[in-house]
Design a binder for these strands. Structure first.
Lengths: 323, 323
DNA sequence: TTGAAAGCGCTACCAA
DNA sequence: TTGGTAGCGCTTTCAA
């Protein structure tokens, strides 16, 4: 099916394509009589502007690539909400690309982004990603990029992360204030930067209280939490739990429920990125990392970079934004 | 920054752009010596193919528009996983557009899809959407579309839905088999087709057992479930619960926990679209609607339609696929 | 106030 | 086996 184009309209009305183009966007140069004619014809022949062609001509795709390590229920929905609220308002769209926790896939997705000429990239790294060499190409091609949430230490790209140190400390304080004496702390994948920073600050805080017995376990998934707890909960004396994320909390909650250990005088404290936790148990205490807020912030930063890039202004410093 | 183009390469090597283009894609017509030269130059000057231009030329964006009523943690992650697994394999990408439960926004997103020349649309309708007049334009423009999950009755587009009737019946049976005598059934938004079909079949099944006392409530959100249950749970005699979705179950779970009513001899049965529920309480019983599966199925159907469209084959019949 | 024409990067047809 | 060229749909400069 042939779609009506500006050229079609021009031929029908015996005027030039440039006039039609200008009339359609209400350019002041064009007389109102011509504008009227053009608009009528456009209406009649069901003309639909081809943004694809416009963007091609303007050398800007108006598309952002969003690369995430995996699509989870804990973080992705809130981050997507944040990102789209910012991008849609500005006429941008975004591809969502999941690395499925594979470094190779992450590299492929970056290729994809470059090939399809995205205007910018928002990326959260996989567990397997140890450096950002594969991101350097973005710099070469002058494609603005922001790393968010899961990152490695680097000083090339702006990054947006939660203030893990502060949050883990606050959680430790909550347990301490509550008078817990025997604490089980549940962390995620030991190799993640995000785990390490939470771990270190949590432990540091605890060190000031040598009377408190602290046990630490690492679990790569909620299921693994359940497995490990099936044994550990035999220890009745645990009076405080720390979960470093929604996912670990999920496993903990499940195990507690199973043994009817909820709603007792145990204290459960967790860092949370999502909206889910408020439905688990009202006695749980959260330190909230708002994924929505992070999405909004990261997207805004990216748009700023894109505008700077366009105006020729070079970025001067690499910033780590802590939320 | 000027990116290397095929033209650049052609000028450097003093050959034509057509030769470069063909060499780059290993066309059999081109001599291997030329191919080598071209590939070397491409490598040296960091040539990156411009898919955007290719697609423009080929009049196919390789992009699918995914329009959803809202971005929830219950359904969206699984559906996205299903969709991307199919689309990425075939070289397609997708925009995700959230209607935020607004009919107007839904219409705008459809415009966006049409304007940016997506090759196809996957859409789940908002609560406010009562007919599909606004989708008709897709037909006019010959853009293939599949409606999934939330739909209205129509016979223009293919649709993919869960077998709500069967699933609600099975849930009713579970409660009946368990010997429940006083059942509370929690449904979602009363106006949704999805609610109605589950409601009708659930009630029909129950009608065969007049001895069972059945109470029904409607709640638009998990929070509303919590509110209503705060009163209703005073009735200690409820021995069976039905939640029509993950979201309603979430509210129910929260209320039960709060009163320490979990792990008793109450039976909780729910229809579920996600992975979350398995962490709530192992005694809950689920009838699973697999979002991942739905995403895969819908995406495959769409790709088939796109290929048919391209080959000029007209669709003959409109099918409702029940999973 | 309007038009002619170039060109974004690439492909594909037709010729040589 | 290679090159010339038209053209996808649109914008924009320059000229009229």
């Amino acid at each position: 099916m042939k779609r009506t184009t500006i050229k079609d309209l021009a031929e029908m009305l015996n005027i030039s394509t440039s006039t039609v183009s200008r009339a359609l966007k209400d350019h002041p140069d064009i007389s109102s009589s011509v504008k009227l004619k053009v608009r009528e014809a456009a209406e009649t022949f069901n003309y639909v502007p081809n943004d694809f062609a416009v963007n091609f001509r303007k050398k800007s795709s108006k598309v952002i690539g969003l690369i995430v390590p995996e699509i989870t229920m804990f973080f992705i929905p809130s981050i997507i909400n944040g990102i789209s609220s910012v991008l849609n308002k500005e006429g941008y769209h975004f591809f969502i690309l999941s690395s499925n926790d594979s470094f190779e896939t992450e590299k492929e997705h970056l290729e994809t982004c470059i090939n399809s000429r995205v205007d910018g990239v928002l990326i959260s790294l996989t567990n397997e990603t140890k450096d950002i060499d594969h991101l350097l190409k973005l710099k070469e091609m002058e494609i603005p990029a922001i790393i968010f949430d899961k990152t490695v230490s680097q000083n090339i790209f702006q990054s947006v992360i939660f203030d893990n140190i502060r949050n883990a400390e606050l959680c430790a304080d909550k347990l301490i204030d509550h008078g817990c004496k025997n604490i089980l702390a549940i962390f995620g994948d030991e190799n993640l930067e995000i785990t390490q920073s939470r771990l270190v600050s949590f432990e540091n805080r605890m060190k000031h209280f040598p009377a408190i017995n602290l046990n630490i376990i690492y679990c790569k998934s909620a299921d693994q939490v359940k497995e490990k707890l099936d044994l550990l909960l035999d220890d009745d004396s645990i009076d405080g739990f720390f979960a470093m994320s929604d996912e670990t909390l999920m496993g903990l909650h499940s195990s507690l429920i199973k043994r009817s250990l909820n709603n007792t005088n145990r204290k459960v404290v967790s860092i949370s990125e999502g909206t889910l936790p408020k439905y688990l148990d009202e006695t749980y205490d959260y330190q909230v990392n708002d994924g929505n807020e992070m999405g909004i912030f990261a997207a805004k930063q990216l748009l700023t970079s894109i505008k700077n890039e366009a105006s020729g202004a070079r970025e001067t410093e690499t910033v780590v934004h802590r939320l």
